[in-house]
Amino acid sequence: MENIRVLGTGHIDLARDDMGEVDIAIGVLRATLAHVAVCEEGEAGEDAENWLHPEEVSLARRMSHDGRRISYIAGRVAAKISLTNWLATDEPDRFWVRPGVFGQPFIDGTSAIGSGLGHKLPCVSIAHSEDASMAMAYHRAHPMGIDLAPIDEDAMPLLQAELTREELAVMAKLDLPECDAAQLLWSCKESLGKTLNTALMVPLPVFEVAELIEEPPFITIHYRNFEQFRTIACRNQTGWFTLTLPRETEITDTSWLECI
C-alpha cells in the first residue's frame, strides 16, 4: 500500500444568527479540512492502510490503474483525517467512506456503532487535483461542498463552450486571465453540485453564476437559481479551491487557509 503525507489540516468555524447553543454543541457550525498527497517512490510517509477501512483497502488493491488508485487512496485518507478530527476519535479504520448511487461519498459507520460514534457521523465532501486530494467533514444539517481545479489551458475550449453569455460578461469584470476565470466558474459549479448531491448531472445553465465579488482573501460567487447558497474561492499553488455553503453563514476566521 502507498505511503501518504499530510499537506495540511484545518478547522472552519462558522456563525449564523438563527442557530442556538444546542446546534453549536452538536457541531452544526463546524467543519474540518484535510489535504493529503500520496508519496512518490522512495519518499518517506505514513502507510495509507493505517487510515483505511478493510473494504477500502480491498478496493484499492484491486485497482489496476495507478492514477485512479492513487487518487482514491489520497481522497479516502483525506476524508478519514477530516472525519476523525471532526469526531475527535483515533479509529479511522472503523469508518467506511462508500460511494452513493450517484458516486457521492457517504460515511458508513456500522462498525463504529458500539463505540457511540455511529449516530454522530458527519457528511464528507472530497475533491481531487492532479497530485493531491482534499476532504471536508461537516454536519448534515448544514450542507457544504468543496472542489479543487488546476489551471488547464488545454481545457479552455470546453470550459468556454459551457458558459452562458451572462457568465462571459461577469468574467470580463475580473482582473484575471481568461482561462483562470473560466476554470473558477467551473470549479464553483462543481462545489455547488457536490453540496446539492447532484454533482454536474444537471444542465449546466441551471448553475449559472450571477455575480463575482472580490473580497480578499476570497472571491465570492452568487448564483442566479440558487440564491440560498454562495461559494468562496481562493487560489492555491496549482489552481482554485472552492467552498460552497449557505449564503447567510459567516466564516469567522481564515486560519484554515494554510492547509489548502
Results as ranks from 00 to 15, higher is better:
residue 185 L to K: 02
residue 166 E to A: 14
residue 67 G to E: 04
residue 173 K to T: 11
residue 145 G to V: 05
residue 222 H to L: 12
residue 191 S to M: 07
residue 33 L to H: 07
residue 125 S to N: 01
residue 162 E to K: 15
residue 118 G to Q: 10
residue 247 R to G: 07
residue 38 V to T: 08
residue 15 A to M: 01
residue 14 L to W: 11
residue 160 Q to K: 10
residue 173 K to R: 09
residue 216 P to T: 13
residue 85 N to G: 03
residue 149 A to K: 12
residue 127 A to H: 03
residue 134 M to A: 09
residue 7 L to V: 05
residue 204 L to G: 03
residue 223 Y to K: 07
residue 71 S to E: 15
residue 166 E to K: 15
residue 91 E to H: 11
residue 121 L to R: 03
residue 163 L to F: 13
residue 7 L to W: 14
residue 191 S to A: 09
residue 151 I to M: 14
residue 45 G to Q: 01
residue 32 T to K: 05
residue 224 R to Y: 08
residue 210 A to Q: 12
residue 57 V to T: 12
residue 44 A to H: 04
residue 254 T to D: 13
residue 145 G to F: 07
residue 8 G to Y: 11
residue 137 A to N: 00
residue 229 F to L: 09
residue 102 F to I: 09
residue 51 W to A: 04
residue 155 A to V: 08
residue 134 M to Q: 08
residue 100 G to F: 05
residue 249 T to H: 07
residue 40 E to S: 12
residue 235 R to K: 15
residue 187 S to Q: 07
residue 230 R to H: 04
residue 171 M to D: 04
residue 191 S to K: 07
residue 192 L to K: 02
residue 115 S to I: 01
residue 105 P to Q: 09
residue 259 C to P: 10
residue 76 R to Y: 04
residue 170 V to S: 06
residue 208 E to H: 03
residue 33 L to Y: 04
residue 93 D to T: 03
residue 84 T to A: 09
residue 29 L to E: 00
residue 105 P to M: 10
residue 26 I to F: 08
residue 212 L to K: 01
residue 132 A to W: 12
residue 209 V to T: 13
residue 102 F to K: 14
residue 223 Y to M: 04
residue 127 A to V: 00
residue 235 R to D: 12
residue 199 A to N: 08
residue 135 A to D: 03
residue 56 E to I: 00
residue 42 G to E: 12
residue 185 L to R: 01
residue 79 A to T: 10
residue 83 L to T: 02
residue 16 R to M: 11
residue 31 A to N: 08
residue 255 S to W: 06
residue 54 P to R: 02
residue 12 I to P: 05
residue 174 L to G: 04
residue 71 S to K: 11
residue 87 L to Y: 00
residue 179 C to T: 14
residue 94 R to S: 05
residue 114 G to S: 05
residue 225 N to C: 08
residue 202 V to Q: 14
residue 50 N to V: 04
residue 107 I to S: 01
residue 154 D to K: 08
residue 103 G to N: 05
residue 123 C to V: 11
residue 185 L to H: 02
residue 43 E to Q: 15
residue 24 I to Y: 02
residue 40 E to W: 09
residue 247 R to I: 08
residue 21 E to H: 06
residue 154 D to A: 12
residue 162 E to C: 15
residue 121 L to S: 02
residue 140 R to N: 00
residue 222 H to Y: 12
residue 217 P to K: 05
residue 3 N to K: 14
residue 151 I to F: 11
residue 66 D to V: 05
residue 33 L to R: 04
residue 44 A to K: 12
residue 216 P to R: 14
residue 166 E to R: 15
residue 180 D to S: 15
residue 215 E to T: 09
residue 94 R to G: 00
residue 232 I to P: 02
residue 23 D to F: 10
residue 119 H to M: 03
residue 13 D to L: 09
residue 162 E to Y: 08
residue 8 G to Q: 09
residue 219 I to G: 08
residue 123 C to N: 11
residue 171 M to G: 06
residue 171 M to R: 13
residue 230 R to T: 08
residue 235 R to V: 09
residue 232 I to D: 06
residue 7 L to I: 07
residue 67 G to Y: 13
residue 166 E to Q: 14
residue 38 V to L: 10
residue 46 E to V: 10
residue 92 P to D: 06
residue 189 K to L: 13
residue 246 P to M: 01
residue 216 P to Q: 13
residue 237 Q to D: 14
residue 160 Q to T: 03
residue 84 T to Y: 01
residue 206 V to S: 08
residue 29 L to I: 04
residue 225 N to P: 03
residue 51 W to C: 02
residue 172 A to C: 04
residue 117 L to R: 13
residue 15 A to T: 06
residue 242 T to H: 12
residue 227 E to V: 07
residue 58 S to Y: 10
